[in-house]
Write a protein that binds this DNA or RNA. Structure first.
Lengths: 341, 341
DNA sequence: GAAATTAACTAAAGCGCTTTACTAAATCGC
DNA sequence: GCGATTTAGTAAAGCGCTTTAGTTAATTTC
């Protein structure tokens, strides 16, 4: 990048006004009295010279950046295995851009996530930060920043009630699945889960609670752990089917693993849904087109991104005083793999 | 965002050195003589105060931003239908971050894409810009910026040879598919394509050329147009199968539409690959787990993102004088839907 | 018609950093 | 042992913008 070729001073000179006036016009600043004629002159001069204000100078003078950051704490290669991130970015940038903010996306994949967070916020790189993929425990550091007056919004519930957040209620989503399967007379419901993170623990808990609230004891032998992708879902399902031939339904905690599970079921010579019911989670684009069509849960991820953007903007503009918790509901999409009518 | 609470001056005061020294130490500036003792003092003071340099001030003083922009010209809701963008972002940010740059992602979905481009570059918001989804015609404006010395790298070939670019050679990918099908004795190969954009025209041309080079005349009646997604792929395939029962193979220009095509074939009572062969394009995660497993083409998108980042960095650092064209090869992944052994 | 108000505009002081030109002390060469 | 060089550091001038506190001329008030 080269130095800004056209400065506000040059615009001022050409328009025959002061630098101050140019600034007032460019920012449409209210409370100032600029005649229509002058405004026109300035606009024209700016147009003719191809003037664009220098963002760094502006953020320095204003003490405010026009960027908002999206910080994703997860390895690069994992970020886009699930549809989560793209959708959030999409909804997020939609709102952010409308309000004149730019989106800074940053991935963190080592343990030191807090230095970048501080650097971005305190270095004035961003006006606020939406963070995703952080564990509940990181609440302390976030809280400190929030106390210092920096806008920070986690995507995912935080244990500390002083922290606002936006999230999707996956517990409810999981319970919907299990209740649905129970309603269809299933009692031995296998579960292919993934990773050891907090988020997943919650879902597993929801699975357990849903069963127990229906009087079905939790059976650890029905749980298998995969790693997001079809490959591991396939392996996990194969292991489950071999060791527990009594399962009548399998719940894959994402559609990718459910897809792998589907292969495993096929390969075991079983039919879906006649011999075994299958439910996924995520409602990925392909899920409606599998054969048979996959019953799954759709989470409002784009909307989550929008909500995150709105909340961070409210914080930036000082409109959010009391902590606010946004929890969006997901939706059970009943198709053919669960054998419902 | 609040004003930077800790300034370099405060660090200087605490360390008992000058502001200049702090700057030298923080930037590890070479050619300066700072004793190890002083360097330590400064580092400690910075650490104790929790100092982070103000990015806006830095970019103003240096006349250089540490951001690189990724500009995506397509509607929000379309951005993530294909796996293209997430993968590119992933590879891109990997390299950018390594070199100490931040990633500014911006979506453009209306016709005025050039104002944001100029604003970002000339306003010093980014040190360079990678643009994707632009038509070949936009070359003029880009060229002007490049002539002015701004680093700009399009993802997709440009018709103007003065413009460097990175791209994936989809023509070759398409030809691989067709040649493969021809080798399997197919001569009436349907094609489900999408959109009217340049990129797709090229692919369609490749389809035509591949056929003709094998002595098979191009038959427009075998072409159907969908819109990326399974729904439209399904509809397009249904229409094709109804009106042209003589097709023996279908090439879906992305896996999503191939997926829809698969449903359409199923529904028509035909078997894959016995009655009809099917090939997709993209090698999405699910494609290996469809039943039957989808033959498709894998494009090195993450690598494309990396290459784009490298090229823009080279331009930023003044290392790229002569135009450079990077064209990455994609790979035909032969699975079960085309009936090859 | 003089004082008060308003409209239209500007001078100048920062914002927090980098960088160039400079100084003072220490070290070197012979 | 004395000028030349090197080492270690600093003062001060910007970078391009915003914003506060004015200034001047025109308009209003009664």
């Amino acid at each position: 990048m080269k130095r800004n070729p056209v400065t506000a001073q040059q615009v001022a000179d050409r328009a025959g006004v002061s630098l101050t006036t140019v600034s007032f016009v460019m920012n449409n600043k209210e409370g100032t009295n600029i005649s229509e004629a002058t405004r026109q002159k300035v606009m024209e001069a700016a147009e003719e010279l191809g003037y664009f204000p220098h963002i760094g100078a502006r953020s320095l003078a204003r003490g405010k950046s026009q960027n908002i950051g999206l910080l994703l704490y997860r390895p690069h290669h994992r970020v886009f295995v699930d549809p989560f991130m793209p959708n959030i970015i999409s909804g997020f940038s939609e709102i952010a851009n409308m309000e004149g903010y730019r989106l800074l996306v940053h991935f963190i994949y080592d343990s030191d996530f807090i230095t970048p967070v501080k650097a971005m916020l305190r270095g004035g790189e961003v006006a606020g930060l939406v963070v995703a993929g952080f564990d509940v425990e990181s609440g302390d550091v976030l809280l400190q920043l929030i106390r210092d007056g920096y806008p920070v919004v986690p995507i995912d519930p935080m244990s500390n009630p002083a922290i606002s957040y936006v999230s999707i209620d996956h517990s409810a989503g999981v319970k919907d699945v299990i209740h649905h399967l129970i309603r269809l007379q299933h009692t031995r419901i296998g579960c292919i889960t993934f990773g050891p993170m907090d988020r997943v623990k919650q879902r597993l808990q929801a699975y357990q609670q849903a069963l127990e609230s229906a009087g079905i004891p939790y059976d650890e032998g029905l749980i298998r752990v995969g790693e997001y992708d079809p490959e591991t879902g396939y392996a996990a399902a194969l292991s489950l089917l071999r060791e527990r031939p009594d399962v009548t339904a399998i719940f894959g905690m994402n559609d990718m693993m459910a897809l792998g599970t589907m292969s495993a079921i096929h390969e075991s010579g079983l039919r879906i849904p006649q011999d075994i019911a299958l439910v996924g989670y995520d409602d990925m684009r392909f899920s409606a087109y599998l054969y048979p069509r996959l019953t799954t849960v759709r989470a409002p991820e784009v909307e989550l991104g929008r909500q995150a953007a709105m909340m961070i903007l409210d914080q930036i503009h000082g409109k959010l005083i009391v902590p606010k918790y946004v929890s969006l509901k997901s939706e059970l999409i009943i198709r053919d793999t669960c054998g419902a009518v």
